[in-house]
């Protein structure tokens, strides 16, 4: 019985599994209609998407500031001539990302406990450190939003959209059947997006003269870059070890 996803097993999804039946299916499809052509490459789908997008409103909007006082002290003075809601939306987005990121690393710790970790792979302490970094980033963003008079508990449109995008990540990380390496692949996507998110947020804070916030965001960005380098290294070590092309025997078997 195979025990790893990279073992040979009974995967039945490809057409080569059924050489006779697959030919019947192909012939029936050809007999039933016109073959593929540029005109059938989803043009009608695109037309409908364009029409609906023109008519559709946004998923939602940015809420008014939590306190008028907070708004008066900070945003009105420092964001004169700008659109503060863009900054608030992105802060809310980053905050949602970091909350989910913390939960993703918690799920990853469970994966670690049952994994056969190769040399060059993560240690529990390293994973816990990243989880704690993500959690601390939640606090930084919460305080930043409060600082400028915004409500950190509101789901901004940006937060909503990253939440939708992240649903698949949560599914992979919490599925008991997925491996540590498969989950690290997903974490890599999240870390790539996270790093770019902090970079943009830092630039925005700089441009809006929020030097105090920018300094904190810059520190978070440095940590995110460290996370990215570590995750890349862990994936490479795991793949080389699993493929048997590098001398990276399991250092911790289960």
């Amino acid at each position: 019985m195979p025990t790893k996803p990279t073992d040979i097993g009974t995967n039945r999804t490809g057409i080569a599994t059924s050489p006779i039946d697959s030919q019947r299916t192909i012939k029936a499809a050809k007999a039933a209609g016109a073959g593929p052509s540029p005109a059938h490459n989803g043009h009608a789908l695109e037309v409908e998407r364009i029409a609906r997008s023109r008519d559709a409103g946004p998923v939602g909007t940015v809420p008014p500031p939590a306190t008028v006082k907070g708004m008066a002290k900070t945003l009105v003075e420092r964001l004169q001539g700008h659109k503060p809601t863009v900054f608030i939306d992105k802060l809310g987005e980053r905050l949602a990302f970091e909350r989910t990121g913390t939960r993703l690393y918690e799920a990853l710790l469970a994966k670690f406990e049952v994994a056969e970790v190769h040399a060059g792979g993560p240690t529990r302490a390293e994973l816990e450190k990243i989880r704690d970094d993500e959690h601390r980033h939640v606090g930084i963003l919460r305080d930043a939003m409060l600082h400028i008079g915004a409500d950190p508990t509101a789901m901004t449109p940006g937060a909503d959209v990253v939440g939708v995008a992240g649903l698949g990540w949560i599914q992979v990380l919490t599925d008991p059947r997925t491996t540590l390496t498969q989950c690290l692949d997903v974490i890599l996507i999240a870390e790539l997006a996270d790093g770019d998110g902090w970079m943009l947020l830092t630039s925005l804070a700089d441009a809006l003269d929020f030097d105090d916030l920018s300094k904190q965001f810059q520190a978070a960005l440095v940590e995110e870059e460290e996370h990215l380098m570590l995750v890349r290294g862990w994936i490479a070590a795991a793949l080389l070890g699993q493929a048997g092309v590098a001398p990276t025997p399991p250092v911790r078997s289960v």
């Binding site: 909350r99 606090g139 919460r142 930043a144 950190p152 508990t153 105090d212």
Partner: peptide, 15 residues
């Protein structure tokens, strides 16, 4: 907890 139980984290104040 409003904003999830992850809100219960203390970070250095903004200067």
């Amino acid at each position: 907890t409003p904003g999830t139980e992850l809100e219960n984290v203390i970070v250095p104040p903004i200067h």
